[in-house]
């Protein structure tokens, strides 16, 4: 839909080699990722950027849904804090989700994600807020005492300093003990992105 504008847009894909060098993507993967970016960015507001509405539509296939986590992910991706993602921001953020990204980067990103108030630690109240939001978003209903007992157990396990909060070091130890907590930080799709968006070869700037 917005192919022509983006091709001539100064925000378009320039120097995929540099981005490939600074991320976990190959040059071909960057070019294929750009095809995905173009598709998502022109969904709602066709300005060559991914706005929150574009992002939610791509994630949920509807823009009528509100999600605490979709907002949180978007805000973390939005490094320039201008409410819209350029391709570079998009590629750099998704790079953390690459199967070959260092696990330390995944730990860091997931900590930031759950540190809702960006205080450098995760409070019990924040964990409760996220559990309640997850249950509401998935249409599940759990009694408050069950939610409290899940959180109690989590803090028993994670809060080894017993100060009622989970700091970065405790988070790191927790996920190293329970690697499944990082499962959503790896997108296998990023391995196959060149297959998913083969049209990148028509716009490729590099010889293979």
């Amino acid at each position: 839909c917005c192919e022509i504008e983006l091709q001539n847009n100064p925000r378009g894909l320039r120097e995929p080699q540099i981005l490939a060098r600074e991320t976990n993507f190959s040059v071909s993967e960057i070019e294929a990722l750009y095809e995905l970016f173009k598709k998502i960015s022109c969904a709602v507001i066709d300005d060559g950027l991914i706005n929150k509405e574009d992002f939610q539509l791509a994630l949920f296939k509807t823009n009528k849904r509100k999600s605490l986590f979709a907002d949180r992910v978007f805000d973390l991706f939005d490094i320039n804090h201008n409410g819209a993602l350029g391709f570079e921001e998009f590629a750099r953020a998704l790079s953390v989700f690459h199967p070959s990204a260092p696990v330390e980067d995944k730990i860091e990103f997931s900590f930031k994600l759950y540190d809702l108030k960006q205080q450098g630690y995760i409070e019990r109240q924040e964990v409760k807020q996220m559990v309640v939001a997850t249950l509401a978003e998935s249409g599940m209903d759990l009694a408050d005492e069950i939610v409290e007992s899940i959180i109690d157990k989590t803090f028993e396990d994670a809060d080894t300093k017993h100060d009622g909060r989970i700091d970065k070091e405790e988070w790191r130890n927790l996920v190293l003990r329970h690697p499944s907590l990082l499962k959503n930080m790896t997108l296998q799709y990023l391995m196959d992105i060149t297959t998913a968006f083969p049209s990148f070869v028509f716009h490729s700037q590099v010889d293979d």
Partner: peptide, 25 residues
């Protein structure tokens, strides 16, 4: 048994954190 589940395990199942849907056509 949800009472034995880690809160973050539950949170990580949230659809808003499942970015793989970005790649669905």
């Amino acid at each position: 048994r949800p009472s034995l589940m880690n809160a973050f395990e539950l949170i990580s199942t949230s659809q808003g954190l499942n970015l793989s849907t970005l790649f669905e056509k």
